[in-house]
Design a binder for these strands. Structure first.
Lengths: 228, 228
DNA sequence: AAGTGTGAAGCTATTCACAGCC
DNA sequence: GGCTGTGAATAGCTTCACACTT
């Protein structure tokens, strides 16, 4: 049993036979990708590590380091082709295809995510929603009908589901994760304020809002104590 | 103008005249805090760095290192008092008091967060909600009435608001942040898939769901390419 | 002249290992 | 004997600086 919270600690090798980049580097690549697409929409065709860093909040050095972990995408003296670089990063991140997602837990947050159309733009398609509460089963949300947990395994197989979003209470998170995993899902986005333990070969990303609020509160506390 | 995404990179000093701990250490403290409260609810009175690490996903070494950055809370040969340690970490994180929060953007996600009662348990009280869209102003959500953005500054002063949660579209994020900051708010939790630039003295935490999905997709892509 | 790609240096974070205290 | 607190060692990440390419 491997223990995950928010990402792997060890460096990972890339699909395209490339070198190594840590987990935090992947987040930066995802931001570069999004920024490059915005540049493309604005009709820009060429950029630089410095410009891309400026827009994403990192140094040009960092951008170049992240990119060269997977190959050589730029032209010395000229810069990076916006379209080509976006496509290359897309290949690294697996964004050439779309990913099928189920939402487990159709409460307030789950329903809000079901209604959010922005994921589709990023290549994530919510194909089904589940809940353990009979009162919620059968309800419509975001164009889908909430299904019983018993149907999860069948849907995962039939619709080739890749990822599950857990929007269940903390006490239900581990059971929901296990249901998803035994249905064959290998990637979880966990919104519950609880740690989820998963076997090797399954990845978990935690969205821990109370921790992020705590981080803000800490910084404000610090600041106020310095100011008096 | 300082640029923020997800947290400061430099070590920070603690309110209680303590030593230094990086931003990621604060997240771990927040998790220790939550776990200690769960232990307290179960009636446990004593724990160890090893046990606390086991429950939060870190090593005992890491737990001790994080704690000693702020003081000496344990008893050699015995362990840590659950209640005392929770209180000490609470003081460090600023959890002795409650924090007043406003939600800017009363769409699906903002409304879901308004309805979520879990924040109160963690010491965060949502005191008002705002939206720029006249169609949403006046609606009820989570016991509050959505107000116009023009009222933000007055409410921040009157209700002593500490933090703002931004649940607006990407294109509106920077303007919403600036409105919050000029009203006197110094901590932002940004759900919009866009970078927000803030002046020195203001903190931003980014909740970037598409980046987290991208991280999962990357790991699945990797795994599949290794397996063939 | 401009900007990439990358060794080397510098810095931060984590783990090791153990002295000291209960 | 058990567990904390912490120097020392290790590992990982970021920045520096520059050779090289267009």
């Amino acid at each position: 049993m491997e223990e995950h919270r928010g990402g792997a600690r060890r460096p990972v090798s890339a699909p395209g036979g490339a070198r190594r980049l840590a987990s935090s580097g992947i987040s930066r690549l995802a931001l570069y990708y999004r920024t490059l697409r915005e540049m493309e929409e604005r009709g820009e065709s060429l950029t630089s590590s410095e410009a891309l860093g400026e827009l994403t909040g990192y140094s040009g050095d960092q951008v170049r380091r992240d990119l060269t972990a997977f190959g050589s995408f730029g032209v010395p003296g000229t810069g990076y082709p916006v379209k080509g670089l976006r496509e290359s990063i897309g290949r690294i991140l697996g964004k050439e295809r779309t990913w099928n997602v189920v939402i487990i837990g159709a409460g307030n947050l789950g329903s809000a995510l079901l209604a959010y159309s922005g994921f589709r733009l990023q290549g994530y398609v919510v194909v089904a929603a589940f809940d353990a509460d009979p009162a919620r089963i059968g309800r419509r949300a975001g164009g889908l009908t909430v299904q019983a947990m018993e149907e999860l395994a069948g849907v995962v197989k039939a619709k080739r589901v890749d990822l599950a979003v857990l929007t269940v209470p903390a006490a239900a998170a581990q059971a929901a994760a296990e249901a998803a995993i035994s249905a064959g899902i290998e990637g979880l986005l966990n919104f519950a304020p609880a740690r989820v333990t998963v076997p090797d070969g399954v990845s978990v990303e935690a969205v821990d809002l109370s921790v992020q609020l705590d981080r803000l509160a800490f910084r404000l506390t610090q600041r106020q104590s310095v100011e008096g």
